[in-house]
């Protein structure tokens, strides 16, 4: 049911490339707007993953339009989305390809940011605060956004490779960043998603321009935002760090010994801390205190 004349867009994000297609022009128009700074050509003319947002049946293209994903690696048991959330659907499809299909690096569900040639890895469950902290760092002078959804661990050296997708801001973090980032870097407000209200924030152009440049991992942080909490931190043991990294990885076990070694190299190279804070200012101050401590 996929037609070659449908609107489409090829995207290169860090080391991976995607071909997105949908018969609904507005979906691809929204992708083109949000990904306007990203290259549309792959290095060799071949893309890694196809992600298509198609009507759930031929009639649903015209009557009560909706869409579902058709990808190289497909989701199971998902309900069709309204066309207004089509771009979000394609984002979910790209995430799925990386989580399930990507094998060139160890994929960790984590955010990452770099200062100079060194990088911090931000791990934690969804909603813990890693996307918000990475967004705060993305628009802080001196920092380079590497990614907010997936961090890519090199298989041979303690390096993090950028995968700087637009940052997925949720609920209260949207207004936090609207006060700190330029208006023209935001995507449309997407309401009624399973995670509440979502708004994407395009990283600074410099971070996208540098998305082929890895950084040496220097710090692992597990951030926790708790309303009105006093800032606090504790060092994590290497055992805890290993277990949390391995549990956060979508492909480490599939990568065999190379995956094990990559995660080991990360925790052997970078100290890890669990941090709690109750405001964005406290988060930045606590994080940068630890950063100065480990990179001094």
């Amino acid at each position: 049911m996929i037609a070659d004349h449908w609107p489409s867009r090829t995207l290169r994000i860090g080391p991976a490339s995607f071909h997105l297609r949908s018969p609904f022009r507005r979906v691809i128009d929204e992708v083109n707007a949000l990904y306007r700074d990203y290259p549309a050509a792959t290095n060799d003319g071949i893309y890694d993953y196809a992600v298509n947002a198609v009507p759930s049946s031929p009639l649903r293209r015209w009557i009560k339009p909706n869409l579902r994903l058709e990808c190289d690696f497909e989701p199971f048991d998902t309900l069709p989305l309204p066309v207004e959330l089509g771009m979000l659907g394609l984002e979910m499809g790209m995430n799925l390809q990386m989580a399930v299909g990507y094998r060139r690096h160890v994929v960790v569900h984590a955010a990452s940011s770099a200062e100079g040639g060194k990088a911090a890895l931000l791990i934690g469950d969804s909603g813990a605060g890693k996307s918000t902290l990475s967004a705060l760092l993305a628009y802080r002078e001196g920092w380079r956004h590497l990614g907010d959804e997936f961090a890519l661990l090199d298989l041979h050296a303690p390096l993090l490779h950028p995968f700087p997708r637009p940052i997925s801001l949720k609920n209260a973090s949207i207004s936090t960043m609207e006060a700190r980032a330029p208006t023209d870097r935001f995507g449309p407000v997407l309401e009624g998603t399973v995670k509440g209200t979502i708004r994407h924030l395009l990283p600074p152009a410099a971070a996208i321009d540098a998305m082929q440049t890895p950084a040496e991992i220097a710090l692992v942080v597990a951030p926790h935002f708790r309303e009105n909490a006093a800032p606090a931190w504790r060092p994590m043991t290497r055992t805890e760090t290993y277990v949390r990294l391995a549990a956060s990885s979508t492909n480490q076990a599939l990568m065999g010994e190379a995956g094990f070694e990559a995660v080991w190299r990360c925790l052997a190279h970078a100290p890890a801390f669990d941090i709690i804070y109750g405001s964005s200012d406290d988060a930045l101050e606590l994080f940068e205190t630890l950063w100065r401590k480990v990179t001094a």
Binding site: T239, Y242, L267
Partner: peptide, 14 residues
């Protein structure tokens, strides 16, 4: 690691 040891078991990949 710390007081413990990580063992990668090649036959199972665990």
């Amino acid at each position: 690691v710390d007081d413990l040891t990580l063992v990668y078991h090649r036959p199972s990949g665990m």
